[in-house]
Design a protein around this nucleic acid. Structure first.
Lengths: 339, 339
DNA sequence: CATATTAACTAAACCGGTTTAGTCATCTGA
DNA sequence: TCAGATGACTAAACCGGTTTAGTTAATATG
C-alpha cells in the first residue's frame, strides 16, 4: 500500500491537482466540476486510500483542526477525566487534541503555550498555573481563541469554564454544621490559586453565617508538593488545644485522601471523632472506609463546554463574545460526616 | 507582538532565507556562515520572538517531532498515568504528544491510526484493542515506527512493552493460597485480550501447581461494558454451592473496585469470609476498607520504555531491531487477603 | 601569474496541499 | 449571427519553511 498524493490522482485521471482538490473538499459542485468527474475522483481516491497530508493542508489553510489542551498533570484523575470529555467533544466537532502537562510550573506552561501556537493548533484549552497573567493577556489581546478551565484569572475578561468554588465549600461546611459539628477546620494548599482562595472564602462564609467566628488557626495551608509529609503534623495540631476540631473540610481530593490516611495513622475515628468532607472526588471514594462525602465537580460539562466555546470562538474569529461559565457542584453525601 | 517569519528576518538583515534558516537550525558553522552573521541572526530572531511555523517545517522535513498515543480510555487512571510518563519522556527527547482514545472500538482505533499518520506523527504508541491485527501488520510491513503497550499481538513480531501477566496472577493466586485460602475464584472480563487470557492462565497455573484442580465454574468472565451490573450476580453465584469461594482474584482494578462494592452490598466480610486481590490498583486502594492487596504495574517504566524504544526506532529507520519488553509487576500486600 | 580552493553567501526548487485568475469550448439570447 | 454567459476545467501562485546546486570574491597553491 504505497502512499498516494493528490498529484498521483490527478495524473492517473488526466486532471489537474486543482480539480481533484476541489472534489475531495466537497467543493466540486460550487466549482462546476462535472458529476462524472467527481465520481471518478472519489472512486480513485477511495480505491487507493488517499489521505491528504495534514501538514500540507494545515500550512496551506493556516489551520490544523487541532486543539491544544494544557493541564497541570494528566495523571491527576480530575484532569484525565476532563481530557477524556474534551477529546470526545472535540472529535465530535472534527478536532484532534494535543495535550501537555505544565506540572504547575508557569515557565513550562508559557513554553507549552507558544510551542502549541507554533504547531498551529487552532485554539487552546488551559488549566493554568495562574501565574502567567502576562501571556494570557497577550493571547487575549491577539484575539487568539482559548478557554481557561478550572482556574481563571479574576482580573481578566477571558473565556472560562470553572465551578462555583465558593458556594461549593460553603455548602460543604454547611453540611458539616447540619450534622452538628461545631469546630470545623479547613485543609487547603498554599498555591495562590484563585479556586483555592474561593474555597477558603466559602468555608469562612458558612461559618460566619452560622455565627461562628472563624479562627485562623483552624485553617491549614500545606505546600503543593510537600503536603503529604506535612499532613500528619497539620492534623495533629488541629486536634489538640481548646479548639480541637470535630470536622475537616479538604479543598481537593488528594488532600482528603492524604488527610484520611493521616487520621487513620493517628488512630482518629472518622466520622466519630472527626467528620471529613472533600472537594472533588477520587475514583474510589465510595469504597473508602468510611465512604467519603464529596462535592463532585461536573467534569463532563467542563470538558464539553470548554470545547464548545472554543470551537465557536474559532469559527467566528474576532467575534470577541466572551463566554464565562460558572458551574455548580454536587454534594455526594456518604458516611464520612456521620449520618 | 506581530508574527514574524523567516522571510522577515532575511529582509531585515539583508540576507537570504537560506542563510537565516541554516543559522537557526544550528547549521551555520557547517555551512560556513560567518560568526558575525550568525550573531546578527540570533539577535534579531530573539528580539522578535521568532518561532518557526511547525507545519511548514514538518511539511518540508517530512516529520513533526510528535508522537501519537492511542489508548482505550484516557480517563482510566492506568492509561492516564502512562500518558503522563510518556509525555514526560517524550518531552525530554524533544517530542510532543498527541493522544486519542479508541474506547475499545477497533474501528475507531483503525481510524485513529490513519488519522495520526496523516498528521505526520513520527511514531505511534498504541494500547490496542487487539482486534486490528490487519492494520498493525500493515504498520509493521511498512516499517513505520510504533510500539505496542499493555497489549500486544502474540502472533506478531512487533515492538512492545507489556507486563508479565501470567506470572502476575500466578503470584497473586499463590499469595492467597499462602494465606490459607483453598477455593479461589477468578473474576475477569470477556474481551479477547491476550493480557486477560494470560492472567487467567497464571491463576490456573498457580492452582494446578498447588495440586488443586481448577474448576471452570470458579471463573467468571464479565462483559467489558456491563460488568458493573453483572458483578453482584456473579459473586453471589460463586459464594454458594459446594465450592463456595473463600478468595477472589480480580484481573483488573475496576473489577476489583466493583467487586468489593458488590461484596459489601451482599454483606460479605472481607477478608474474613472472602479474601480479595487485584491486578493493578486505583489511586486509593490503600484507603479502602479493607485496604486492597494489589499487583502494581510499573506504569512509569511502561511509558518511559515505550518512548525510548520508539524514538530509537524513529532514529534508525528500517533498522528493524524489534524490541520486546516484558516487565515484572510488584505485589503490594495489604489487608484484603487477611494477615 | 594562472588556477584551484575556500569562505560566505543566494536563487530556486521542493514539501503537498489550496486557491486565484484564467482558458477554451459550448450554449444562450437579441 | 455574434457578444456574452456558462460549464468544465487548468496553470501557476501561495502557505513558510528546508535544501540543493550554484555564484562571487578573496585566498592559497604551484
Amino acid at each position: 500500500m504505497k502512499k498516494i498524493f493528490l498529484k498521483d490522482i490527478a495524473e492517473a485521471l488526466n486532471l489537474s491537482k486543482t480539480a481533484v482538490s476541489m472534489v475531495l473538499n466537497n467543493k466540486g459542485d460550487e466549482n462546476k466540476i462535472s458529476k462524472a468527474t467527481q465520481k471518478r475522483v472519489w472512486a480513485y481516491a477511495r480505491a487507493h486510500h488517499y489521505q491528504p497530508n495534514q501538514m500540507a493542508r494545515g500550512l496551506s489553510l493556516g489551520k490544523s483542526e487541532t486543539i491544544g489542551l494544557i493541564v497541570p498533570n494528566i495523571s491527576d484523575i480530575f484532569y484525565a477525566t476532563i481530557a477524556h470529555y474534551v477529546e470526545r467533544k472535540a472529535k465530535a466537532l472534527g478536532y484532534n487534541v494535543v495535550f501537555s502537562s505544565s506540572n504547575e510550573d508557569p515557565e513550562t506552561e508559557k513554553q507549552l503555550i507558544y510551542s502549541m501556537l507554533n504547531r498551529q493548533v487552532d485554539g487552546l484549552i488551559i488549566a493554568s498555573t495562574q501565574k502567567n497573567q502576562e501571556d494570557i493577556e497577550e493571547l487575549n489581546r491577539s484575539k487568539y481563541p482559548f478557554v481557561l478551565i478550572d482556574r481563571h484569572y479574576p482580573g481578566l475578561a477571558t473565556n472560562y469554564v470553572i465551578v462555583d468554588n465558593l458556594r461549593g465549600t460553603e455548602q460543604m461546611t454547611r453540611h458539616l454544621l447540619k450534622q452538628g459539628r461545631q469546630r470545623i477546620g479547613l485543609v487547603s494548599i498554599e498555591s495562590g490559586l484563585e479556586a483555592m482562595h474561593q474555597r477558603q472564602l466559602g468555608y469562612e462564609k458558612a461559618l460566619r453565617d452560622a455565627g461562628l467566628e472563624d479562627g485562623a488557626e483552624t485553617v491549614k495551608l500545606l505546600s503543593p508538593f510537600g503536603y503529604e509529609s506535612e499532613m500528619k503534623e497539620a492534623i495533629r495540631s488541629m486536634l489538640h488545644g481548646p479548639r480541637a476540631v470535630d470536622g475537616l473540610v479538604f479543598t481537593t481530593h488528594y488532600l482528603a485522601a492524604s488527610g484520611l490516611r493521616a487520621l487513620k495513622a493517628l488512630g482518629v475515628e472518622v466520622p466519630g471523632e472527626v467528620a471529613l468532607i472533600s472537594f472533588d472526588e477520587l475514583g474510589a471514594f465510595d469504597l473508602v472506609e468510611p465512604p467519603i462525602t464529596a462535592n463532585q465537580q461536573p467534569v463532563e460539562d467542563i470538558g464539553r463546554l470548554a470545547v464548545e466555546i472554543l470551537v465557536h470562538e474559532i469559527g467566528c474569529k474576532g467575534a470577541g463574545m466572551d463566554k464565562q461559565r460558572v458551574l455548580p457542584t454536587q454534594l455526594l453525601i456518604r458516611k464520612s460526616c456521620g449520618a
